[in-house]
Simulated assay, not measured.
Amino acid sequence: MRLSRSVAIAGIFLSIFLPFSAARADEPVPIAEKGSWRLVFGDDFDGSQLDRDKWTTCYWWNKDGCTNLGNAELQWYRPENVSISDGHLRLTARRQKATGIEGRTFDYTSGIVTTGRDYDELPRPSRVRFRYGHVEVKAKVPAGKGFWAAIWLLPESRESRPEIDLMEVLGDSASTLRMHYHYVDAASEKKSVGKDVETPDLSAGWHVYSLTWDPDKIIWYLDGKEVWRHTDAATISSEEMYLLLNLAVGGEWAGSPPKSTKFPSQYLIDYVRIWQRDDG
């Protein structure tokens, strides 16, 4: 999502390493990775309300809503746009005016969830943070110009880098899976690497997006098949990170929605899971 330091909206983070217990035989296992893993976080969204011990509904600069000004996005994220029903997390984008930061008017509202923290929760750490592991999300993205669905990781430090973009899909080009890694090199220069992979229309059905983050490599997968890897070990983050899922509207990359874009539209998530290697 290319979080910018000029984002300017209101913020905090929350963090607790979930206690790591021994893997159980009945626990789900990654579809993309072999070996021994232990599940350290999971949500199947089987209830009727978002579990606030696991999730918050804004960036850490939350002040009665939030957005990402660094990307010139057009939505104001609101908790009402986050819901759970029929076993799915629903992030809903609406063509709806809202008053946000510094009294600005936003023409759209949408939803975001993170395992981070809210502004009024400082200096508490993120709800869930981790260093290395495997992240797996089953999701269905919406179609339509102006939509920008994402799954990504940000550092516990509240800096804009490193950032690992597990998945980014633009609604008007949903046959392209976009993946990025943004970092700061040894000379303190900002760097980015990325890859676009042509796919079937990702908005047409459910897909499993996953990523393995190890000290010497980051590997991206779609439906259990590897699609890209970054293996420059000297650049790979060792910082604790937390997880974000959001549906942005507009911005420098996605562009403004035309009248033909359907509202309301939903970004659906069936489950989210995080494992770490069970190496004793």
Rank of each mutant, 00 (worst) to 15 (best):
S260K: 11
R273F: 03
M179G: 08
D26M: 05
R273P: 02
S36N: 11
K54W: 00
S36D: 14
C66A: 04
E240A: 03
G111C: 01
S175A: 10
R158N: 08
S256A: 15
W152G: 12
T67P: 01
L268W: 11
Q276S: 04
E73N: 11
V197Q: 09
D216Y: 01
I101C: 06
I269L: 09
A248T: 02
V169T: 05
K97I: 04
G87R: 12
F45Q: 02
W148F: 13
S157I: 01
A143M: 01
R124S: 13
R95D: 14
G144P: 02
R78Q: 15
P200Q: 11
S238I: 03
P79W: 06
V128Q: 00
S6A: 08
T235V: 01
M1H: 15
D43H: 09
I151Y: 04
T199V: 06
G47C: 09
L211I: 14
L122I: 13
V82Y: 04
H180C: 02
R52V: 06
S237H: 00
I218M: 06
I9F: 10
D223Q: 05
Y119S: 14
F17D: 13
L74Y: 11
D86F: 10
K225N: 14
W220E: 07
L154Q: 12
G11K: 05
Y59W: 09
D107E: 14
Y181L: 07
E27A: 14
S238E: 14
S238D: 15
G280Y: 10
D64L: 06
Y271E: 01
D223A: 04
S238N: 15
D64W: 01
R131Q: 12
D53N: 15
Q75F: 05
R78V: 15
E73T: 08
V249C: 08
Y77E: 07
R24K: 14
Y59S: 10
N81M: 09
Y267N: 04
Q75V: 02
V272C: 09
S126Y: 00
A72S: 13
D86R: 14
T57M: 13
L177S: 01
L74N: 03
R24C: 09
S238K: 13
N81D: 15
A143I: 03
C66I: 06
G35P: 11
Y242C: 01
T99D: 01
R104Y: 04
A254S: 10
S256V: 12
E27L: 13
E198Q: 12
G280T: 10
W37L: 05
